[in-house]
Computed example of a mutant assay.
Amino acid sequence: MARTLVLIRHAKAQHPDDRADHGRALAGQGRRDAPVIGRWLRSQDVAPQVAVVSSALRTRETYQLLAAELPAAPDPVVTDDVYYASAGDLLEIVRALPPEAGSAAIVGHNPGIGMLANALDDGDSTVGDTTRMRTGFPTSSVAVFTVEGDWSAVDPGGLRLVGYLVARG
């Protein structure tokens, strides 16, 4: 069974001096960019059945805004496990996704989310603009991968990148 994995870095966040990192909200640019992510996923016929979202405010807001653009977005599984997660931590989250899910999205942070995207990529993609993915995975980046087999068997270098976007609204 072919599956789809979507890795999303949150949209641009505010940098207030008086707020802890976990509570940073989206900036105006981020509020404009996040719906672009959802519209792009819809245009690619990508509809996550499961969404695992960092507990940070900016990731929850990103998911809420992008999900509003999807026909049937799932309620997010909000977890501290994605906040400050390394690529290895995130890989374990992917491997633990429900076996019945045919598609899943993870909304997280750099450096972990970008490092995971690059680690999973088999390097044979013909998707354009992947240089941005490989050199930094900017805010509002979305990488879509095809997964052959079970989530539990996902390994570095084993997924085909089939879509990539840096959303700018």
Rank of each mutant, 00 (worst) to 15 (best):
M1N: 13
A2I: 15
L5G: 04
V6R: 00
L7R: 09
I8W: 02
R9W: 00
R9Y: 06
K12F: 08
K12E: 00
A13R: 07
H15V: 13
P16S: 02
D18L: 02
L26W: 05
L26P: 05
G28L: 09
G28F: 06
Q29P: 07
V36Q: 07
R39S: 01
W40Y: 05
R42C: 08
S43W: 06
Q44S: 06
A47I: 04
A47S: 13
V50C: 02
A51Q: 07
S54C: 07
L57Q: 15
L57I: 15
E61K: 07
L65E: 06
L65I: 05
A67D: 06
E69I: 05
P71Y: 03
V77H: 12
T79Y: 07
D81M: 12
Y84V: 10
Y84K: 15
G88K: 15
L90C: 10
L90W: 08
L90R: 05
L90N: 10
E92R: 14
I93Q: 10
V94A: 03
E100V: 11
A101H: 11
A101N: 08
S103I: 00
A104Q: 13
A105Q: 09
I106W: 03
I106Y: 03
N110M: 10
P111L: 00
G112N: 02
L120I: 07
D121Q: 05
D121K: 06
D121L: 00
G123E: 11
T126R: 14
T126W: 09
G128S: 15
G128L: 11
D129C: 11
T130V: 08
T131W: 15
R132V: 11
M133G: 00
R134K: 13
T135S: 14
F137N: 01
S140L: 01
S141W: 05
V144A: 01
F145C: 04
W151P: 12
W151R: 10
S152D: 15
A153W: 10
V154L: 01
D155C: 13
D155M: 14
P156E: 01
G157D: 01
G158Y: 14
G158H: 12
G158Q: 13
R160Q: 14
V162Y: 08
Y164E: 00
Y164N: 04
L165T: 12
L165K: 03
R168C: 04
